[in-house]
């Protein structure tokens, strides 16, 4: 193990890490938003919309993520939709993560008991007040553990985007290996970096979970 070499490669790796984090955060933000909307649509009672959301979730979960990326990056331009590598990556990662977030939030919504509805009706809350002040906080809390899992998986799956040439952490490492043949050093460093990212996000998620379960006498 040549630590001097790792130190020399570190600025490059950090540039890659920056792209990894930017793409991941965009995808996490968008997928949580889409997940929430999708879960609400799935409960909306409008049959065609429900079927569409279910079909989307099943299709994304039933097909390889790598093929989805290739379809979005290479396939969509011939249909008239041309995106840069960066935005193709964001779209592919968002499309993948959204399917899982829809499922997570759907389970979260299902966990809120129907007694809440009667309770807020008896307190004279309007429908929108009920949805935003009662259901949303409770459903978010119930969905959080599995949503955190998907968020961590989103960061990990940003590594797949090296296949379309997005210059993120894994791409930088593989690119340097092609020139310098220092495979052990490069993979050791990116493994450590990914582990740090994953542990940090899991830790943050755990803190948020504890904060949110405070009103319920949680630890």
């Amino acid at each position: 193990m040549d630590f001097a070499y790792i130190l020399e490669a570190l600025p490059d790796l950090m540039t890659g890490l920056k792209t990894t984090l930017i793409v991941s955060f965009l995808a996490i933000f968008l997928s949580c938003l889409i997940g929430l909307v999708g879960a609400v649509l799935r409960k909306s009672g409008i049959k065609p919309l429900q079927y569409a959301v279910t079909a989307y979730v099943e299709f994304i979960r039933g097909t390889p993520y790598l093929v989805q990326i290739f379809f979005i990056f290479y396939g969509l331009p011939s249909l008239g939709l041309r995106f840069s590598i960066f935005w193709s990556g964001v779209i592919a990662l968002t499309a993948w993560a959204s399917a899982f977030q829809i499922e997570n939030f759907r389970a979260g919504l299902a966990a809120v008991g129907s007694g809440m509805h009667d309770a807020s009706a008896s307190l004279g809350l309007k429908r929108w007040q009920h949805s935003i002040f009662i259901i949303l906080p409770l459903a978010t809390r119930a969905a959080l553990p599995s949503a955190m899992n998907t968020i961590v998986a989103t960061v990990k799956n940003s590594a797949y985007l090296q296949a379309i040439g997005l210059v993120e952490l894994t791409f930088v490492a593989v690119d340097r290996i092609a020139y310098d043949f220092r495979a052990i050093e490069m993979f050791a460093s990116i493994c450590v970096i990914y582990l740090i990212c994953v542990f940090t996000i899991s830790g943050l998620g755990y803190m948020v979970e504890r904060r949110l379960s405070r009103p319920f006498g949680g630890r």
């Binding site: 961590v152 990990k156 799956n157 940003s158 590594a159 797949y160 090296q162 296949a163 894994t170 593989v174 290996i177 495979a183 052990i184 993979f187 990116i190 493994c191 990914y194 582990l195 994953v198 542990f199």
Partner: peptide, 15 residues
């Protein structure tokens, strides 16, 4: 479980 599968696949191939 925590390292991306893509990285594991490339690592086994290169290392």
């Amino acid at each position: 479980r925590d390292i991306p599968l893509m990285v594991t696949v490339l690592m086994v191939y290169f290392v």
